[in-house]
Amino acid sequence: MNHAQKGFTLIELMIVVAIIGILAAVAIPQYQDYTARTQVSRVVGEVNALKSSAESIFNSGGAVANADNLSATPKREIGIGWTGSNLVDPTHGTNGLNITNGGQADMSWDVVLGTDASGAVAGVTITVSRSTSGAWSCAITGGASVTGWKDSYAPAGCPHS
């Protein structure tokens, strides 16, 4: 009589489980790094997108603000158009955006990552600045104080300092 083996042996199943465990041990940290990096890049893109609005406000003789106040003196305040982000701390500034020297040519704004941001990047500050000559710059600060922060999370156009 010929008895053919059917199914898998316990050893074969244990080998498959071990292989899956090894792959998961490598893949999960890589996925977490990818998630943190894309969250930082997304917020950098969101705050950098406000530069064209700020230039338009300056060109029309206004001051950059979070909301319109057209009766403000000496310059009318024009809202920059920030509506918020689920990756920034909404208690920092207005809807998460803090504007400094909005009526001056050398102004800046910053956001602090929080709310839905990964724990590896929550607490990091992204600052976009304009010099009096009209040059824009971007910087990321606070990474050293955040558990799990890696400098590779910062995009090329907005380095960690």
Rank of each mutant, 00 (worst) to 15 (best):
116 D>P: 08
44 V>D: 03
54 A>L: 07
90 P>M: 10
138 C>N: 00
92 H>G: 04
17 V>S: 14
73 T>A: 11
46 E>L: 09
108 S>K: 02
42 R>H: 14
86 N>Q: 11
15 I>A: 15
34 Y>G: 12
44 V>C: 04
103 G>H: 05
14 M>N: 08
143 G>R: 01
155 P>Y: 04
87 L>N: 01
122 A>N: 03
74 P>G: 06
4 A>K: 15
139 A>P: 03
31 Y>L: 11
16 V>M: 09
22 I>W: 09
39 Q>S: 03
101 N>T: 11
159 P>S: 06
31 Y>F: 12
96 G>H: 05
149 W>K: 07
75 K>M: 09
30 Q>Y: 12
48 N>P: 08
117 A>I: 02
102 G>P: 06
80 I>L: 05
125 T>W: 02
106 D>P: 06
147 T>I: 15
68 D>I: 14
94 T>M: 06
35 T>A: 08
104 Q>R: 15
95 N>E: 07
109 W>S: 06
66 N>E: 05
55 E>I: 14
159 P>H: 11
19 I>K: 12
22 I>Q: 08
49 A>C: 05
97 L>Q: 05
140 I>R: 02
137 S>L: 05
51 K>Y: 09
45 G>V: 14
13 L>Q: 12
75 K>R: 13
103 G>V: 06
14 M>Q: 11
150 K>W: 13
44 V>P: 00
126 I>S: 00
3 H>I: 15
66 N>Y: 07
143 G>K: 01
33 D>F: 08
118 S>K: 06
38 T>F: 10
129 S>H: 03
119 G>C: 04
21 G>S: 04
61 G>Q: 04
47 V>K: 00
42 R>I: 14
4 A>W: 15
116 D>H: 13
19 I>G: 13
104 Q>P: 11
54 A>E: 04
69 N>M: 10
134 G>H: 04
100 T>M: 11
2 N>F: 14
47 V>L: 05
81 G>R: 01
13 L>A: 13
25 A>E: 04
131 S>H: 05
126 I>E: 01
144 A>Y: 10
117 A>E: 00
148 G>E: 03
11 I>P: 13
94 T>E: 10
98 N>W: 14
134 G>K: 11
131 S>W: 08
156 A>W: 08
123 G>E: 02
66 N>G: 14
106 D>I: 09
7 G>R: 05
94 T>N: 04
139 A>Y: 09
95 N>K: 10
151 D>G: 10
131 S>N: 10
154 A>Y: 03
158 C>A: 06
138 C>G: 00
11 I>H: 12
43 V>Q: 02
74 P>T: 07
19 I>M: 06
156 A>R: 11
127 T>W: 00
107 M>F: 12
44 V>F: 02
35 T>C: 10
109 W>N: 02
70 L>Q: 09
30 Q>A: 15
151 D>W: 07
74 P>E: 04
136 W>C: 07
38 T>D: 09
154 A>E: 02
151 D>P: 09
61 G>W: 01
72 A>H: 11
129 S>E: 05
96 G>T: 03
146 V>N: 02
12 E>S: 07
90 P>V: 08
91 T>K: 12
68 D>Y: 09
62 G>I: 03
90 P>I: 05
5 Q>M: 14
93 G>P: 07
8 F>A: 11
110 D>R: 00
18 A>E: 09
62 G>F: 02
1 M>L: 15
127 T>I: 01
33 D>I: 07
